[in-house]
Simulated assay, not measured.
Amino acid sequence: MTLEVDFHTGVADKLGYTCRLLRKAWRSGKQVVVTGPPAALNRLDQLLWTFEPGEFIPHARLRAGQAIEPRLARTPIWLAESPADAGPRDVLVNLGPQALATAATGSASCPRVIEIVADEPDEAEAGRERWRQYKAAGLNPRNHSQRPAPAA
């Protein structure tokens, strides 16, 4: 199985963008795991409850090493410090600055990886480094720039 890697770059509001991306994935029936720094996952957890009035995106927070409770096993979106803890998923979304070792080498548990890169110099540089790591692993990532087109 070939791993698909998509970079969404130049994102002005990283967590707001991620909320919209997760809503779209959930509506299309995808199982998703989101990984990143614990503080970002905690904030995303809060935003998924409040970013759209009257709308709920089913998700659960999973801390490193925590087992999934059987009653939550069918939850479509997991916010996980360690993506492997969430089990097989359709999509892995990375909010963190480091490349995911299992993703760079390919993983049957998540056939698609989405890298979210904010429009900030440090984030852009970390994103370029992850891009190089995917290329070095023989993958062909695609870029989806979120920067507005220059005025003509």
Rank of each mutant, 00 (worst) to 15 (best):
Pro53Arg: 15
Ala67Lys: 12
Pro70Leu: 09
Pro53Asp: 15
Gln46Trp: 01
Pro37Tyr: 00
Leu47Phe: 00
Leu44Glu: 03
Pro53Gly: 14
Thr75Leu: 10
Glu69Gln: 12
Leu48Pro: 07
Ala60Gln: 07
Ile57Arg: 04
Gln46Asp: 12
Gly54Thr: 04
Phe56Asn: 01
Asn42Ala: 15
Ala39Val: 14
Gly54Val: 03
Phe56Ser: 01
Leu47Ala: 04
Phe56Lys: 01
Gln66Asn: 13
Ala73Met: 12
Asp45Val: 04
Arg71Ser: 11
Ala39Ser: 14
Thr75Pro: 07
Glu81Thr: 03
Leu79Arg: 03
Ala73Gln: 14
Glu69Pro: 00
Glu69Thr: 06
Pro38His: 10
Thr75Gln: 12
Pro70Ser: 13
Thr50Ala: 13
Phe51Pro: 11
Leu47Ser: 01
Trp78Glu: 10
Pro38Gln: 06
Glu81Pro: 10
Leu41Arg: 01
Pro83Thr: 03
Ala39Gly: 13
Ala39Thr: 14
Ala40His: 11
Leu47Tyr: 01
Phe56His: 02
Trp78Asp: 10
Ser82Tyr: 14
Glu52Thr: 08
Ala40Ser: 15
Pro76Asn: 11
Pro38Thr: 10
Ala40Glu: 13
Ile57His: 05
Arg61Tyr: 02
Ala40Tyr: 05
Glu81Tyr: 00
Ala80Lys: 04
Thr75Ser: 11
Leu62Thr: 03
Leu47Gln: 10
Leu47Val: 01
Leu62Ser: 09
Pro37Arg: 00
Gly36Ala: 09
Leu79Gln: 07
Leu41Lys: 03
Leu44Thr: 02
Gly65Asn: 02
Ala39Tyr: 05
Gly65Trp: 00
Ala67Ser: 12
Asp45Phe: 05
Arg71Trp: 08
Ala80His: 07
Arg63Thr: 06
Asn42Asp: 15
Ala40Trp: 06
Thr50Met: 09
Gly54Ala: 04
Glu52Leu: 08
Gly36Asn: 04
Ala64Cys: 09
His59Arg: 04
Arg63His: 05
Pro76Lys: 14
Pro38Ile: 08
Ala80Asn: 09
Ser82Cys: 15
Pro70Ile: 04
Gly65Tyr: 00
Leu62Glu: 11
Pro53Ile: 13
Thr75Cys: 15
Thr75Glu: 09
Gly36Asp: 04
Gln66Phe: 12
Ala40Gly: 09
Arg74Ala: 15
Leu72Ser: 11
His59Tyr: 05
Trp49Ser: 11
Leu44Ala: 04
Phe56Trp: 03
Pro76Ile: 09
Pro37Leu: 00
Thr75Trp: 06
Gly65Ala: 03
